[in-house]
Amino acid sequence: MQSPSPATSHEDLRAIVSDHMHLEGPMLPMLHAIQADFGYIPEDAISVIADMLNMTRAEVYGVVTFYHDFRKAPAGRHVVRICRAEACQSVGGTALSEAALARLGIGWGGTTANGAVTVEPVYCLGLCACGPAAMVDGKVVGRLDAARLDALLAEAGA
């Protein structure tokens, strides 16, 4: 992972935050835009947002850490989100994901040693009539079985 130089990142952050200042309730759109650009929420972002929205850093930190989506560190090159909710459980989702994690030697939220894949839990993708379901970098997959999931993980470089 290449990290941008601090000066550039600070300016970029201010630019992203400025773009959203006109919105009502701008914080979440700002954080989404920052994460889309940087891949995570850099610590610097908290000061920049706090400064520009006239809030304390503690308040901004509180918001960032409340939501599952915002990362404090970059993820692997690919993110595989596997549904853990009831509908997927009813068709064997639990055994499927546990076996996959065991094979990769990581836990939920973990990244493979080669930095290729982060596996995250997700509670429902709305694919409840065609589970077990997963999402690979925003692309949905349904009716997963062990072979299919292995193929997806291998394709992602895990």
């Binding site: 919105l23 701008p26 979440l28 954080l31 989404h32 509180g62 918001v63 409340f66 509670y123």
Partner: peptide, 27 residues
Amino acid sequence: EIRVGAGAYVCGEETSLLNSLEGKRGV
């Protein structure tokens, strides 16, 4: 406008959703 949530189930509760929409913790 379309606003995107951030992975908190509780934000489906209306008051928590409003806090989230305002840019706060979704309590």
